[in-house]
Design a protein around this nucleic acid. Structure first.
Lengths: 246, 246
DNA sequence: GCAATTAGTTTGTCCTGACAATAGGATGAT
DNA sequence: ATCATCCTATTGTCAGGACAAACTAATTGC
């Protein structure tokens, strides 16, 4: 069972060795070479087989354990988790997620303004009173059918935002292009029933179930760049994630 | 700004050094000694100040970065994230969460049976056809008010479950006591509107919003031990989490 | 004055080596 | 046969060193 993984490591590549191992094992699990429940060789031998040091091998396996693909037990070994693992939902935008799945998301910009932030928004973005922010609401459709109604506030000292660019691409893509490196986000997921404003926009009826998501995103300098409140049609969207015990 | 952290490391303690550092810095952030946005000393000096090696210091900081408390940038340094940090919601049970918050959760066991798993459950728990499982539905109340309606299936080869013990403690506590070490869970969060069965149990009206959660938990041997479908009153519960970019 | 180069700081990656802790099976004694 | 003990395999923790890459700021050259 414990066959040495058939991986190729490119030491001249700019991408870190441990990350190459992560991707390699991920692929082996995805294409079925590593079947769920099977045991891996011990990390010492694996490292030797790939001409890597043990810490590097360990770092790769750590990532996979955190991602929920592997399970380790001291004195026993490492196993492939028996589950059809979905992407552990990292910090990404809805637009990117949908695009990656092959759907074609479109965006209608419903409102767009550059305004003084009210007290609540100043609080959420840790801005001084009187700061200005971009505020806009968008309707996200996929294959022509409405999926999400999104309201966002973005601090205006990171980049200028044009209404037209919001129609073309996701908010996160715009901010990334402007040099913003997102690091983490605080998120809250709940539920509500559609009101008479939301229902027609989402092509549903008042009283139908909606998933709500509030998020505030922080960049690599510790600034809170963006906060927003989104609602999704519950029959077309839900949040999947993998929780890992530490 | 860059004052050496005032931490005490106990080398004789059984808890790992890096974890002591994690807890120490967590406490400093919580009690306000390390204010949001402030810069930490560089890892080399910090390690030296605590008489630790750099890898150990780094491992501690890695954890804190993953937990969303710190933000690092090459060539620049490490900062405390400017956010009112909530617990990143790990793999824990509702019962434990509520208890930790000081609430007093109670449980009504509505149904309890030991049955043949149907095809869907066998699929979810990766069990062979014809395997038996425990199936039960519970109503979780806090301070006497209903909060969640929970339906669960547990494979029966991990431990025997008594209906009476479910009323006293959380499911995860029972399984942990039986020697089950949970490692990860796949989770999906969505929304629905209360139907005529759920509404009276949750002390609300049909048509009100509910948060739905489906979860399958895996233990350290890779077995899928438990799967369940829970619904929560949307006005009393939501899921909070911190997403970290890797 | 302004841009390009350079130097210094800090985190990122990778290596080697060592010992500890745990799980599980093998072994031995009762 | 059953229980306790030992042994082995494997992961967990920790140290110390080396170089690379990215960012900042100062210096230099024009």
């Amino acid at each position: 069972m414990a066959n040495s993984l058939n991986l190729s490591i490119d030491r001249s590549s700019p991408i870190p060795l441990y990350h190459q191992v992560v991707q390699g094992i991920e692929n082996l699990i995805h294409d079925g070479t590593l079947v769920p429940g099977s045991k891996l060789e011990n990390e010492i031998d694996l490292a030797a087989a790939l001409n890597l040091s043990r810490p590097t091998m360990r770092k790769a396996m750590d990532e996979l354990v955190r991602a929920g693909l592997l399970v380790r037990k001291r004195g026993v070994g490492t196993q492939v988790v028996a589950s059809q693992v979905r992407r552990p939902l990292e910090l990404s935008s809805l637009f990117d997620d949908l695009s990656a799945r092959g759907s074609k998301p479109t965006t209608d910009v419903l409102t767009f303004s550059h305004i003084d932030a009210d007290a609540v928004i100043c609080e959420k973005l840790a801005l001084p009173a009187g700061a200005k922010v971009y505020h806009f609401t968008r309707l996200r459709k996929v294959d022509g059918k409405p999926l999400a109604l999104m309201e966002n506030w973005v601090r205006d000292d990171v980049t200028a935002i044009e209404e037209t660019s919001l129609a073309d691409q996701g908010l996160y893509a715009i901010l990334r292009n402007a040099g913003v490196n997102f690091r983490l986000a605080q998120q809250r997921i709940g539920a509500m029933v559609a009101n008479s404003y939301q229902a027609p926009l989402l092509d549903t009826v008042p009283g139908s179930a909606l998933v709500t998501m509030e998020r505030t995103a922080v960049d690599d300098t510790g600034r809170m760049v963006e906060t927003g409140r989104h609602v999704y049609r519950a029959d077309q969207y839900s949040f999947e994630m993998t929780l890992v015990q530490r």
